[in-house]
């Protein structure tokens, strides 16, 4: 397989396949993420806050102690909305830019590995790390609730993990795009945090302000909500848990009445687009940009 030479003569060697390189890079990325402090801290924070949310939701409903997982779900949705995009955006933003900054990117690309293999491998490795983090966080939460004798609705848990993963994949794509565009890791992570703030707070406030100031029609309000992957996640989670979007106001009511059973497909398509399009743009930019 390997080339050996005599002076002036070369036997060609076959480089590793696309899948092999993808797996190698992804495993390395997963291992680095699992060893890193951010992974452990985010996972711990997620589990601890999840348990906290259970107490709060129980108190809110007049009960005492830990709430069952079904009732906790609504609280967890808000927790996921805050933590998961932050995890994914910052992890993605640091991925390529930090390698470029320490000279590692050029060194990696000097090996028989293509740019697409490297980018996708990193994306998959980070996605696996995020999935592990979500499973650990939700799992600890569910295990403790079960141990305390509260019922755990497995279907809700699985839905929530799946949708959280969809949100993670879409925001991870955006983070990777920021990482490809930025020269320095600090700039990429800074942009990621700014974007997170924008998606979490400014968009909500902006929608409210827009509704009042510009007298947005309900369908326009829904369309604007679908532009934000966090809003998509929120609507989809509520729809999946109790199939009722009334709590989201007129836009939710409109969505339920107008689209009904097609909402799963619409929300899924939105998150899929948020996952694929930024990653495709990142790949296009990365394939042409100097790694130095």
């Amino acid at each position: 397989m390997n080339a050996t030479i005599a002076a002036g003569a070369v036997r060609t060697a076959t480089p590793p396949s696309f899948g092999s390189n993808l797996a190698t890079v992804a495993q390395r990325e997963l291992r680095e993420a699992v060893r890193s402090r951010w992974f452990v801290l985010y996972t711990l924070a997620f589990a601890v806050l999840g348990l906290g949310v259970s107490y709060v939701s129980a108190a809110g409903s007049g009960g005492s102690g830990l709430a069952g997982f079904g009732r906790t779900t609504a609280g967890l949705i808000n927790l996921v909305l805050l933590i998961v995009p932050l995890m994914a955006l910052t992890a993605g933003a640091a991925s390529i830019a930090s390698d470029r900054e320490r000279g590692m990117l050029a060194y990696l690309l000097a090996q028989p590995v293509s740019r697409i293999e490297l980018l996708l491998g990193k994306y998959l490795g980070l996605a696996a790390a995020l999935f592990a983090s979500l499973c650990v966080g939700f799992g600890v939460c569910a295990a403790v609730l079960s141990f305390k004798g509260e019922g755990t609705r497995v279907a809700s848990l699985v839905w929530l993990i799946g949708l959280s993963m969809g949100l993670a994949l879409s925001t991870l794509s955006v983070g990777v795009l920021l990482s490809v565009l930025a020269r320095k890791a600090s700039a990429a992570v800074g942009a990621a945090v700014f974007l997170w703030l924008t998606l979490v707070f400014v968009t909500d406030l902006g929608l409210m302000a827009g509704t009042v100031a510009m007298r947005l029609r309900v369908e326009q309000l829904l369309a604007l909500s679908l532009v934000n992957p966090l809003q998509v996640f929120k609507m989809w989670s509520l729809h999946a848990v109790d199939a009722n979007l009334d709590v989201l106001g007129p836009a939710g009511l409109y969505a339920s009445e107008e689209f009904g059973g097609r909402l799963h497909a619409i929300f899924g398509l939105c998150l899929a687009l948020w996952s694929v399009v930024p990653l495709a743009v990142a790949a296009a930019v990365f394939s042409r940009r100097s790694p130095v």
Partner: peptide
């Protein structure tokens, strides 16, 4: 590039 870099 991958084939070339296999030799380097």
């Amino acid at each position: 590039g991958k084939h070339a870099r296999m030799l380097i």
